[in-house]
Amino acid sequence: MTNFGKVISVIEEIIQILILLIIIATAIMAVSFKDLLAAVISLAATSLLLSLEFYILQAPDVAIAEAGIGAALTTAIFILAIKGTVRREEL
């Protein structure tokens, strides 16, 4: 039984490290994209993975708030702003 629990905890730690690495990758993508719509989508992916990480750390309250505010509403506001202005970033 203890052996099984140890295997589960190791798998959990590997999943956490993978999620954190993908969060960093999507954050760098959000900074470096020239297409602003793609940058907004990768920012939403960052927020969604962050809420998954909160859920793994056993804080489902914060996970729901992060998924609602960070992944949905902020994306909606940014998409409205892109509709009002231009889509490509000018250098």
């Binding site: 489902p60 309250d61 729901i64 708030a65 609602g68 949905a72 509403l73 909606a76 506001i77």
Partner: peptide, 17 residues
């Protein structure tokens, strides 16, 4: 899990969609 703030944010995200 959840509460007033979280549920209101989810409903508002549906409105935004």
């Amino acid at each position: 899990p959840g509460g007033g703030f979280q549920g209101g944010a989810v409903v508002a995200s549906g409105i935004a969609l």
